[in-house]
Amino acid sequence: MLSIISDAIASTSTSYQGSSYSMIIMLLFFGLFFYFIILRPQQKRAKLHKALIHSITKGDEILTNGGLVGKVAKVTETGYFLVSLNDTNEVLIKRDFITAILPKGTIKSL
């Protein structure tokens, strides 16, 4: 009985000895897939966001990640914006947290 089981196990444990080129081609394919599906679109979004951030000037109406809508009152060299939410409230916001520049007159229409 034991010899039958050991023969069955031995017959199923054959290893596949494929070409080493197939492994290299598969790794290359997955690398290209990863680049075109994940890395490249992320790099494009980061480049667009950086251009958006550098185009902000005093008086622009902006939207932040937190949902605040305000007008840029002051742009500092250290990477922060002083945003006026209304006539009495001003908030200091880091440059990276700006989501979009809104069209002029958006705050008044809200």
Score class of each variant (00 low, 15 high):
M1C: 06
L2A: 13
L2R: 15
S3E: 13
S3P: 00
I4A: 09
I5N: 05
I5Y: 15
S6M: 06
S6K: 05
D7M: 12
D7T: 13
I9P: 01
T12S: 11
S13R: 10
S13Y: 00
T14L: 09
T14A: 14
S15H: 06
S15K: 08
Q17M: 14
Q17R: 09
G18P: 14
G18I: 02
G18W: 08
G18C: 06
S19D: 15
S19R: 15
S20W: 14
Y21D: 12
Y21R: 14
S22F: 06
M23T: 12
I25L: 08
M26V: 10
M26A: 09
L27T: 09
L28P: 00
L28C: 13
L28E: 01
G31C: 07
G31Q: 04
G31P: 03
G31D: 08
L32K: 01
F33L: 00
F33A: 00
F34G: 01
Y35N: 02
Y35R: 01
F36V: 11
F36G: 00
I37V: 12
P41Q: 04
P41T: 00
Q42P: 05
Q43R: 13
K44G: 02
R45H: 08
K47Q: 15
L48Q: 13
A51E: 13
A51H: 01
L52A: 05
L52V: 01
I53W: 00
I53M: 09
I53R: 00
I56V: 13
T57K: 13
K58R: 08
K58Y: 03
G59W: 10
E61L: 06
I62S: 02
I62D: 06
L63Y: 04
L63C: 06
L63N: 11
N65A: 05
N65K: 11
G67W: 12
G67L: 12
G67H: 15
L68Y: 15
L68A: 14
V69E: 14
V69M: 12
G70L: 04
G70V: 03
K71L: 09
K71F: 03
K71D: 00
V72H: 07
V72G: 14
A73C: 01
A73L: 12
A73S: 12
K74Q: 12
K74T: 15
T76G: 06
T76S: 09
T78Y: 12
G79I: 06
Y80W: 11
F81H: 00
F81G: 01
L82D: 04
L82N: 07
L82G: 05
V83Q: 03
S84E: 11
L85P: 02
N86Y: 05
T88M: 07
N89W: 08
L92S: 10
I93F: 04
I93G: 00
K94V: 06
R95V: 09
D96M: 08
F97K: 03
F97M: 03
I98D: 01
I98K: 02
I98L: 04
T99Q: 09
A100H: 05
A100C: 02
A100R: 01
I101F: 02
I101K: 15
L102Q: 10
L102V: 06
K104T: 07
K104C: 01
K104L: 13
K104H: 12
I107A: 07
K108F: 05
S109W: 05
L110A: 10
